[in-house]
Design a protein around this nucleic acid. Structure first.
Length: 243
DNA sequence: GTGAATGTTAACAG
DNA sequence: CCTGTTAACATTCA
């Protein structure tokens, strides 16, 4: 479920509950839940892969990690790690991490790096990249402080679409290529969201889980690259490694 | 039945 | 202390 665009979609599905009052809250999460009773859900926000449920006295931050899921007015057989009831309606969160945030969200989060944010600022991201010159582009794309909301699928797809090799050092990425990458990040994020909504997600991957490069039919490589312990899919033929 | 996966981090080893 | 590895997560899919 979770990369930045999935969270936007989730927020949309939960939006009817903004302004509604919580009648019960619980779950096996470590987070205390008693404080939520009779509180009105004021706002739902996201920061990358964080779902933020804001109440007057604090915010619930939910992370779906790899296995998380959310059901509205439905239940699984297993217990929810967190749930909220709004009268007859219920939101059930499974295998999620929930945490209470006390501070105002603007003090915690920099919205400029969130690829799905209205105020996403690619110039700012470019500036952040300067201090990571000796790291590899494939690694930095999963750094949530820099590319907030990018996950492994987005990472692989935008590297391919930018014809950029994951092992390229950030300082060696030509400025024009970086511009393309930043543009593709935003663009593919939008496409990801549209496909989620349309139910066609996964049908248009160009490199992720593909065997063959759609540009030149050469073999796609699948291996752990860089420091991040995640599988990288790339075309060694058309994704250039700049030195 | 097995292994891998859209993620993160605490715990541990060296 | 710093750095890297591993396990864990009331999972789910091919």
């Amino acid at each position: 479920m979770p990369e930045g665009p999935s969270l936007i979609y989730l927020r949309e599905k939960l939006s009817p509950y903004t302004g509604k009052k919580v009648t019960a809250a619980g779950g096996y999460t470590d987070m205390p839940t008693a404080w939520l009773k009779n509180k009105k859900l004021l706002e739902i926000k996201t920061w990358g892969k964080h779902l933020l449920l804001r109440f007057a006295t604090g915010t619930v931050r939910i992370h779906l990690m790899l296995f998380g899921s959310v059901l509205i007015n439905k239940r699984k057989k297993v217990n929810a790690s967190f749930y909220l009831h709004f009268g007859k309606d219920e939101l059930n969160f499974y295998v999620v991490k929930a945490q209470k945030l006390a501070q105002p969200l603007d003090e915690i989060y920099d919205w400029r790096t969130d690829i799905m944010s209205k105020i996403y600022d690619s110039k700012h991201v470019r500036k952040l990249l300067k201090s990571h010159g000796d790291e590899m582009i494939g690694d930095i794309l999963l750094n949530q402080e820099v590319f907030t909301g990018v996950g492994n699928i987005i990472r692989n797809e935008i590297l391919f679409r930018s014809k950029l090799h994951p092992l390229t050092l950030i300082k060696n990425v030509p400025s024009a290529v970086l511009t393309i990458l930043l543009k593709e990040t935003k663009k593919y994020g939008k496409q990801f969201l549209q496909e989620k909504k349309a139910g066609t997600f996964g049908q248009h991957w160009e490199v992720y889980e593909r065997k063959e490069c759609p540009r030149d039919t050469s073999a796609i490589k699948k291996e752990i690259t860089g420091k991040t312990k995640r599988k990288t899919y790339y075309c060694p033929h058309c994704q250039e490694k700049y030195r």
